[in-house]
Design a protein around this nucleic acid. Structure first.
Lengths: 331, 331
DNA sequence: TTGTACGCGTTATCAC
DNA sequence: GTGATAACGCGTACAA
């Protein structure tokens, strides 16, 4: 093993094994047209010198980093971690590296991120971030960066998208409940939480308007603690209802506040978590939730992007169904 | 906005603004010695042409990618997501990009990861992965890659480490409980879950041996569902105990199994979660847990690495205290 | 202040 | 099969 020498270059390998750069390069890339004998010789000196090709130089020469950018609002959500997990798995088998670009849910950061993605020379990018809009995506596209966009209504060249069918499902669930269930339905509105939630909320509201039913909306913070505290207040006056919450932890806040206010779940208070994770079945009573396999979404996104990069055919639009999982937080 | 042209290079900018490559380069890097007038001219053509410097070429020329590698076992754990969150925040303010390297808890993958980190030309790496051992780290070090290693007993040049004091805390908690509490203590053993858990388990066992007390160990799977099922069985015969579980979801499995077996928590069954996250206070009864601010750990790791990269002084070893948070799953 | 020329570590297109 | 040599896009002494 080498001890703190400078990086060994292809040139040194060439000299040490008495061949030219070109030959070494051929050996590295398993390029044909090289005698088994010289190949072996080169490989030996490569091992002896501890040579590792520089992906940087390779990338510059070939115009291909094997690097794809992942644009997300934050790494801190469970459902994003799930997606990330699918991405890393698939990227590994396909031989890509993942570079993270986080917008922190700020438009300002999003603009910076667009710049960074461009300068970073990624081969392509997967965008799962509501902060980026049509113009940002167009900009990325204009720099010829193949894109897979999750949960966003955009189109362009070298651009595929992945959609969730949450809206439909929410319409169904809402309509069904209005027919059978008895309680007034409430939506937990999060101030700045992206298009998906906005669309779901709209679907919820429209369903009620169409049915001529009354509904309620509560504005909440994206924090378990705060939402729990808020609902302790709310449950002083509102003693029943069917609540739609964006994430498991917010749904749990409602449930816990209800229980701590002497209400029964689901008899008095029913709760539906819109983006269910494994915690839905850990929390008691277990959360009824909509569920999408985000690990699958992640790996699919990488697969699609990879096809783009290899000029294979890609379905331009893939849709993921959410399933309604009935557990114990609803009747 | 450009439409699908090829990448604009510094050369085209130079020609278009009637200066030399060097001058453009100076403008990009805010290098002094360039007239305000020409600077403005160059900046205008940069904007007009939509030129973005190639980080690749810059990196090759300067021998600095502004890229740091993050080695983790998986992106799918909440506590790792928390750490990642701290890292992305700090990296953003410091101007670094994060590249993910995931070992999937496999030694085989770990070896591949070492290779990839080396060829990827990262400026440095943060290693939070028990799969990498002393020799892997040494290899990385021999390629002059500055390292911040979390939760691992290694040393070397350009290598700083971050430690957790979990062992100490577990010794304390265990000893305290044996004095005051009455139940037999059990440790949930996870087959292949890294050094941290091993050390904690050892601390747990040694405490008991020193005190001449009896203890138990249950082997479990790293899955809520399986562990829940297992404990339904266990609670048929074992009707009380104090259980130490690695993560919140496993602790929740024990709690839920206990409750579903007609046992009371914490009167019959007490549970301590070793790596507490926000879910510790969401689950009911709320989990007593040890807690470390992993977001802080993540940002600190990036800060330390960044100091290395700038040849500033770094404390070689930083320790994070875990705090014992008493909630409702213990007496 | 600005320009020239070389180097960074590879790949790729030629010849031989 | 193998070897020069020109790219790839940029930084930077050194010269002017």
């Amino acid at each position: 093993m080498k001890n703190m020498k400078d990086r060994v270059t292809i040139y040194e390998v060439a000299v040490a094994s008495g061949v030219s750069l070109a030959t070494v390069s051929r050996v590295i890339n398993n390029n044909s047209n090289v005698t088994a004998k010289t190949k072996k010789r080169v490989e030996e000196t490569i091992a002896r010198l501890g040579y590792k090709p520089s992906r940087l130089a390779q990338a510059l020469a070939t115009n291909k980093t094997t690097n794809i950018g992942i644009v997300i609002p934050s790494a801190n959500y469970v459902y994003i971690a799930n997606m990330l997990n699918g991405m890393t798995d698939e990227a590994k088998t396909l031989g890509y590296q993942l570079t993270l670009f986080v917008t922190n849910k700020s438009k300002e950061d999003a603009l910076q991120v667009v710049e960074k993605v461009i300068t970073s020379h990624v081969d392509g990018a997967i965008i799962f971030d509501d902060e980026l809009d049509q113009s940002d995506i167009a900009k990325l596209s204009s720099y010829k960066i193949p894109l897979v966009v999750v949960n966003n209504e955009v189109q362009g060249e070298k651009l595929a998208s992945i959609h969730f069918d949450y809206e439909e499902k929410v319409r169904e669930v809402t309509a069904d409940y209005m027919k059978k269930g008895g309680k007034k339905m409430y939506f937990l509105h999060l101030h700045h939480s992206g298009r998906l939630l906005e669309r779901i909320e709209r679907a919820f509201i429209e369903s009620h308007i169409q049915a001529g039913k009354n509904y309620g909306v509560f504005s909440v913070e994206d924090s378990y603690r705060q939402t729990y505290a808020d609902f302790l207040e709310i449950f002083k006056s509102t003693r029943s209802g069917y609540f739609l919450a964006y994430r498991d932890s917010l749904a749990a806040a409602v449930i816990n506040a209800a229980l701590d206010s002497g209400l029964r779940v689901p008899e008095d208070v029913e709760v539906l978590s819109l983006i269910g994770t494994k915690y839905a079945s850990i929390i008691r009573p277990q959360l009824t939730s909509l569920h999408i396999d985000l690990k699958d979404v992640g790996s699919t996104a990488v697969t699609m992007l990879s096809k783009f990069l290899n000029d294979e055919d890609v379905e331009q639009d893939k849709s993921f169904d959410s399933t309604f999982v009935k557990r114990d937080s609803t009747i």
